[in-house]
Nucleic acid binder design. Structure first.
Length: 492
RNA sequence: GCGGGUAUAGUUCAAUGGUAGAACACUGGUUUGUGGAACCAGCUAUGAGGGUUCAAUUCCCUCUACUCGCCCCA
């Protein structure tokens, strides 16, 4: 027995040594090479939030499960199948948030924001968690940003939500986005519509898919959204929410459409659109992007949730909001080749040789950095050749070389990487000299850019001139033809 | 949650029932203190566990991950 135990121990040790850690299923690292896209995205979102006066709110990742069970709805897939739920050591039932809206409403109520002037406009962004099967563009940890406006029922805010989303897409140069739009009514009109829908579907129960037979009992509205061919056929003839709105919902919806026309945002009315969350009323909308293969993927969506605040224990407060998947936006940016945020790169590289020089380099690095000059280095390297090749790789314009000799003399070699030329300069003048050279180079680059732009302009004006000339020629032909005809007819 | 495919070096890809190769990348050298080129050398891999076999990276099973489709969504 002890022998076996020892063997097992050894085996386990071996296993542990061999074990290579990797991300947990559905999680992922966003590596430095992807960061420019995220930086750009964050910048665009932030700008829109500021422009439209939506104040940032940061919300905890962990919340009471009941917040989502009651808010998002226990019947929804998000809560019933996909929630990351667990008990804390203290026995609290908590979860990783699957979406943002209930948290926003919770914060609104918890901190007495209803006293603030209406509407209360809030924006958030951060990771959300859904225990779903990972796929392309779908992770268990994914990032969403969202905007919520609480305390205003006017459809102008619904329109503003859509306007903001469209402006974000535009700023990211994601052009092939379509807005799908519907109104699903309120407590007044929905019960009677539900009855109609249920009786319609019950008559055709046999031609529905398994899921929809179940949905018929739990959440008949969701049958409209089913993508099974059988069901879409049945649904296409089904009574539509839009035709059974109460007068209040009807005017609300038509005024939203008018606002959208006013700001010239095209929309696709989709009577089957209902969305997967229980709290929506009146307006619901989604944004779809079509990729090269013709597949549509949802970028985001939102709608009005006039009862959610009350449902979570607050006073009657109409509200509207939307959220977008940032991972999918980044994907879209990549396929559309959006220009990304490029962080500045160091133009000076500090190379050192020998112990004395290494010590001095650390100080010189700081001095340069303090005067606003970005410096790259690889102090860990001892050999000058590899340091220069590094400098070359990062496209440094200037390399400062401090060797044993220079360190003792209080000088440094300044090497221009473009020309290859170099000269020895006393350390106290080095910053001035570096600045001077960088400035010179920057001027040169500016000049070149200007020249190129001028060349482009010239070409353009040439082309337009040619076009104008061609047009003129054509016109002349027409005119002469006309005048000839006239003359001929006169003669007749 | 259901179904299909895949898993070899940091990356892209080879090969094989018995010795696992290349390219790029990385490190060092040719040049004891000078980059972009060339040449030379080095480093690094069969996802995890089990079975069949004299022998498994290869065949079989399980798990895990990735991936595609469904469901759902962002």
């Amino acid at each position: 027995m002890p022998r076996k135990k020892q063997e097992n121990k050894k085996k386990n040790l071996k296993r542990q040594k061999k074990k290579r850690f990797q991300t947990v299923r559905g999680m992922r690292d966003i590596l430095p090479n992807e960061q420019p896209y995220w930086q750009k995205l964050r910048k665009v979102i932030e700008k829109i939030a500021v422009d439209y006066n939506y104040n940032r709110i940061d919300l905890p990742l962990i919340e009471d499960v009941d917040l989502f069970k009651r808010g998002t709805g226990e019947e929804t897939d998000i809560v019933s199948k996909e929630i990351y739920e667990f008990k804390t050591k203290g026995g609290e039932k908590v979860c990783l948030r699957p979406e943002g809206t209930p948290s926003v409403v919770r914060a609104y109520l918890q901190h007495g924001m209803r006293i603030a002037p209406k509407p209360v406009k809030l924006s958030y962004s951060g990771p959300m968690y859904r225990y779903d099967r990972p796929q392309e563009g779908r992770y268990r940890e994914f990032f969403q940003f969202g905007f919520e406006a609480l305390g205003e029922q006017d459809a102008v805010l619904d329109a503003q939500m859509i306007q903001m989303a469209m402006r974000i897409f535009k700023a990211l140069k994601i052009h092939n986005v379509t807005l799908h739009l519907n109104s699903i009514g309120c407590d007044e009109c929905r019960p009677s519509y539900n009855k109609l829908l249920i009786s319609y579907l019950n008559n055709r129960k046999s031609s529905l898919c398994m899921d929809c037979k179940r949905r018929l009992k739990t959440n008949p509205l969701r049958v409209l959204d089913c993508k099974e061919e059988k069901c879409t056929q049945v649904v296409s003839q089904a009574p539509q929410t839009v035709d059974h709105l109460c007068s209040d919902c009807k005017t609300h919806f038509t005024s939203l459409l008018e606002y959208l026309d006013e700001i010239q945002i095209p929309y696709l009315l989709r009577p089957q659109l209902v969305r997967g969350l229980d709290y929506y009323t009146k307006t619901v909308f989604e944004f779809f992007m079509e990729d090269d293969l013709g597949n549509q993927s949802a970028l985001g969506g939102g709608g009005r949730y006039d009862y959610l605040v009350r449902k979570l224990g607050g006073p009657d407060t109409p509200a509207v909001g939307f959220a977008c998947g940032m991972d999918r936006l980044v994907n879209a940016m990549k396929s559309q080749k959006t220009d990304t945020y490029q962080p500045p790169t160091p133009k000076v590289y500090l190379a050192q040789l020998g112990d004395v020089a290494k010590k001095k380099s650390l100080r010189i690095f700081e001095e340069l950095e303090r005067t606003g000059i970005m410096v790259a280095e690889s102090f860990g390297r001892g050999n000058l050749r590899s340091q220069l090749s590094q400098a070359n790789k990062i496209k440094a314009e200037i390399v400062l070389i401090i060797g044993q000799r220079e360190a003792l003399d209080g000088t440094a070699i300044l090497k221009d990487m473009n020309s290859g030329g170099q000269e020895t300069i006393p350390l106290d003048k080095i910053i001035k000299e570096v600045k001077k050279r960088l400035h010179k180079n920057a001027e040169m680059i500016k000049k070149i850019i200007k020249q190129k732009a001028a060349q482009k302009k010239k070409r353009k004006t040439k082309n337009t001139r040619k076009k104008i000339q061609l047009k003129a020629k054509k016109n002349i032909h027409k005119k002469t033809k006309k005048s000839i005809k006239k003359k001929v007819s006169r003669k007749k």
